[in-house]
Design a protein around this nucleic acid. Structure first.
Lengths: 340, 340
DNA sequence: TCCTGGCACTCGACTGTAACGAGTGCCAGT
DNA sequence: ACTGGCACTCGTTACAGTCGAGTGCCAGGA
């Protein structure tokens, strides 16, 4: 396809104008607002080509042009540079994140910060258990037949779970169990624990065997199988900006998708490439989100990645700005985690 | 004000029809759909009176009548009986709540259940710390100068917090601290802890004094001051039912309000009367929610109340049905908590 | 005294027509 | 290869007219 430099410039101009005005942009307005150095008629010819190639389209015959998902894609890949953050934004990020005392606190502040800076819906995944290691396991007797199991991960996450024991267990045995469990599991990556837990049961003294078996079941459930992942969300009210024009008039599918943790995890949790990922409109695998775009990236202390974060908004969003913000926030959060 | 039985019957009919059809209801339609035993003209006279008294109003001159907030209030207080739950609903509640392993689990299941049954936005407050007692405090050494403080409440809530110690503390001292803290605080209501914590510091051995002081600060922050309350939310997508007619076309203020924990707590957290509370439209103290109604109640094991739960929706909602559901769910959750 | 049928009236919803104008595609000329 | 000009499309807006649901009021009857 023959897209020369000017045609690309036209596409860029269309995207920028449409994102900021939210109205279809015509050839005349384009040459007025950008120094393209050619006449509207020429721009129209270029537009015709861009439309033929599927980068823009006309909502109605007598209206201007609007970028398609494919047009945004080209824009993001080749026509935009990452916008540097304004000093005000930088300051906001720093100020927002100091004083966090808790992992919960960090995550909550982060998600609100992201929502505020981007004016989109923000999503932050808690540090993934799968990518964490066990720092310590604590067993707290609640009654003679009940224990509270508390797992503290190196990422700061704390999970707890009530354990119903098969029979009464004396305090000394609890101490033994605690020691055994920690000797075996402390320091291990959560994803590596199943065989270790198995070994624990097999090596346990006959006296402790039944209790350990129960404990092992709960351990596996808590550490590996169950609600492994947590998510924080903020800024849903931002969906209502752009007065019903975005999302073709109905927020319903979006709101539904946002309530499904599984969906959100898919969106921001796939962090293999460790670079910023942009999903535009129907590139998204969920039908409910085919009118939305997602900008996401991984975060973590140093170079490692323990979770994902990102923003979700209309396809008509400020990609360069949002990409810059998401990256910057991820970096700051990573630094914060590294300090602990 | 002279509202005889028939006028009340007319009001009831208007509310019921409007709630189910979502359209202003006229005198003719009313007599057709209800056995009022009088003619449309008579109903019109009654309507005129009801309108004068502020219970109904006309959106336009040539339209039917619509209940006002005041009309709904009268309906709820005097004209409706609590709808018994359908067997299907009963079954749904029971099935939904068995198998919950965790307080987190219970709360999440409850909030989703409520949202599903009422088709409104559901809100559930975690058992309030202020109404809980300390079951156990655990101190887990993370490094020589860091402890993880874990508080387990009798309601099942678990709070944790990282403590930065002023200097290295040997393991034996941690054991002592743990014992001291538990001796003093275990069993105490959280709201009663401040003086006890103070006493802990004063009675501590000189050797432990600095550490205990730091610990005390964090304890007070964690137990009393900070994010004492937590909230779970579900069903926001239900706001989009009734296609923009409810909430005068903009979900924005509602979504904004739902993001403020403080607002939600005010809505469902004030559980003094222990009976079901209904807030209709502008009875609500938050401007953002003047187009919404809230049905809420307290829940807890036995007769005690440890938190609140409820639903939020358009003023045009099925009050009798929602009240019944909210009550039933609260009772079941209470029973569930009592078992632990 | 209260209810009812009848009737004029209001006013939003809908329909059809016309003018307007933003924007386009195409073509001939440079 | 670009440009100015021009005819054309079609959504938007304004306006007028009709329709009908629903009302308020009144006179007559139980």
């Amino acid at each position: 396809m023959g897209l020369d430099d000017r045609k690309l410039a036209v596409l860029r101009a269309i995207v920028e104008d449409y994102v900021s005005t939210q109205e279809p942009v015509g050839s005349k307005a384009l040459v007025e607002r950008h120094q393209l150095g050619v006449s509207p008629a020429t721009v129209r010819n270029d537009m015709a080509v861009l439309e033929e190639e599927g980068y823009i389209r006309q909502p109605h015959t007598s209206a201007g042009r609007v970028p398609t998902d494919r047009g945004y894609r080209l824009f993001v890949d080749r026509l935009s540079r990452v916008k540097p953050l304004s000093p005000a934004e930088r300051r906001a990020i720093e100020r927002f994140l100091v004083g966090a005392v808790d992992l919960d606190d960090v995550v909550h502040r982060t998600v609100r910060l992201l929502a505020q800076l981007t004016r989109q819906v923000a999503v932050v995944q808690y540090p993934s258990l799968a990518r964490s290691s066990v720092r310590h396991l604590e067993l707290v007797p609640i009654s003679t037949t009940r224990l509270m199991l508390v797992m503290i991960a190196d990422t700061g996450r704390v999970e707890q779970r009530l354990v119903e024991l098969p029979g009464p267990v004396p305090a000394d045995d609890v101490t033994d169990l605690r020691r055994l469990v920690n000797e075996k599991l402390a320091g291990a990556r959560l994803s590596d624990t199943p065989p270790l837990v198995q070994a624990l049961v097999e090596e346990a003294l006959p006296k402790l065997r039944p209790t350990m078996t129960t404990l092992a079941t709960v351990l596996l459930e808590t550490l590996v199988e169950r609600h492994e992942e947590r998510i924080a969300l903020a800024g849903t009210a931002n969906l209502t900006r752009g007065g019903l024009l975005d999302f073709q008039g109905s927020l319903r599918p979006i709101l539904e998708a946002l309530e499904e943790e599984v969906v959100l995890l898919k969106l921001i949790g796939e962090t293999e490439p460790s670079t910023t990922r942009v999903l535009i409109g129907d590139e998204n695998e969920f039908d409910n989100l085919r009118a939305a775009s997602v900008v996401s990236t991984g975060y973590g202390p140093g170079a490692t990645i323990v979770g994902g974060l990102g923003v979700l908004g209309p396809t008509r969003m400020d990609y360069p700005g949002n990409i810059a913000t998401v990256r910057a926030v991820a970096r700051y959060v990573g630094e914060l985690l590294a300090q602990n």
